[in-house]
């Protein structure tokens, strides 16, 4: 899956996260995560993000995440939503989303 348009999902509110995706200029996948709890949970957040993107087979795009202390389920949901919006994908493949 490729990010073909700019898209946003989530919010800046506590326990949530904001995911911004945009097309890559050089066909690479770049991920940036900032978080209120980056010291404590940075690795875990990044792990969930990477895993979610991998399951969706995202090959290129720029993913910028502002985490506000979200739990893993919210990270998965918001990353998936932003990617599906950015890839203009209307069909839901539940295997990939699980």
């Amino acid at each position: 899956m490729r990010i073909i348009t700019e898209a946003v999902a989530g919010s800046l509110e506590s326990s949530d996260l904001l995911v911004k995706v945009s097309p890559s200029r050089d066909k690479t996948l770049e991920i940036y995560v900032t978080s209120d709890v980056i010291e404590q949970f940075g690795t875990q957040i990044r792990h969930v993000v990477d895993d979610t993107l991998k399951r969706l087979a995202v090959t290129d795009g720029l993913i910028v995440i502002e985490d506000k202390g979200a739990l893993d389920y919210a990270i998965r949901a918001r990353v998936q939503t932003a990617v599906l919006r950015g890839a203009a994908c209307k069909e839901l493949n539940w295997e990939q989303l699980s």
Binding site: Y73, A74, A77, T81
Partner: peptide, 16 residues
């Protein structure tokens, strides 16, 4: 709608 659907999908898959 799309975002909420996935939020609910994933919260249900936890033990919360």
């Amino acid at each position: 709608k799309d975002s909420a659907r996935l939020m609910v999908f994933h919260i249900l898959r936890t033990d919360a």
